[in-house]
Amino acid sequence: MFEARLLRSSILKKVLEAIKDLLTQATFDCDDNGIQLQAMDNSHVSLVSLTLRADGFDKYRCDRNISLGMNLSSMSKILKCAGDKDTVTMKAQDNADTVTFVFESPNQEKVSDYEMKLMNLDLEHLGIPETEYSCTIRLSSAEFARICRDLSQFGESIVISCTKEGVRFSASGDIGSANIALAQTASVDKEEEAVVIEMEEPVTLTFACQYLNYFTKATSLSPQVQLSMSADVPLVVEYRIPDIGHIRYYLAPKIDD
């Protein structure tokens, strides 16, 4: 028996928003520690890694390890039926071919259940190597979303360049070019608005705008985002989900032909 209950459905709704444009289907691997999801987009350019820890749920029970293969567009349709303040419970029997979502209104006067067919997904799992990154940049997630959106107007790629002076995002194309430079913040009133850079070595890498924009669908999960870069390896874009886990996106760089 697997059962996981969240007092607020909004976390799960936001998680789905954060992955459903990038992935069509994914396996939720559930064990004692919580729920893990790892999947690549169809083009294998990016990889999503989601962790929801058991202790972040209001109730969590997983008697046997279970993999729930879900069609994310169907799951998203179902989660849209939950009110933000509803409690959500995901349930599946051992060896089940369906998963059930139960939504309860705060006053318990409305209880809905939705059963969804599971899919048998034979998806490739990748080992993500432990990496010491040359640069990590922490900034407001809303600011990062705005930068990606603004620069997307100029070209298909964004160059991210991190030095000890700061981080610079650039794009160029038919209409011209754009550069956004952020300096490390000296002092701020709100911690989540700070720009914090840790740099061992300067790094410049180029990434596809389209994917960065997909990642920013996770903005509402966290006030801050962390970018980790090293030369010639995928960028990591991490959103920490308060009290329960994180979502990490890995994006393969573009290289000179």
């Binding site: 294998h44 350019v45 799992h125 190597p129 790629s157 390896v233 393969a252 573009k254 290289i255």
Partner: peptide, 13 residues
Amino acid sequence: MAQTTITTFFNSR
């Protein structure tokens, strides 16, 4: 520029 893929960097488990 050419787009690389994730599988170039991370191996199958």
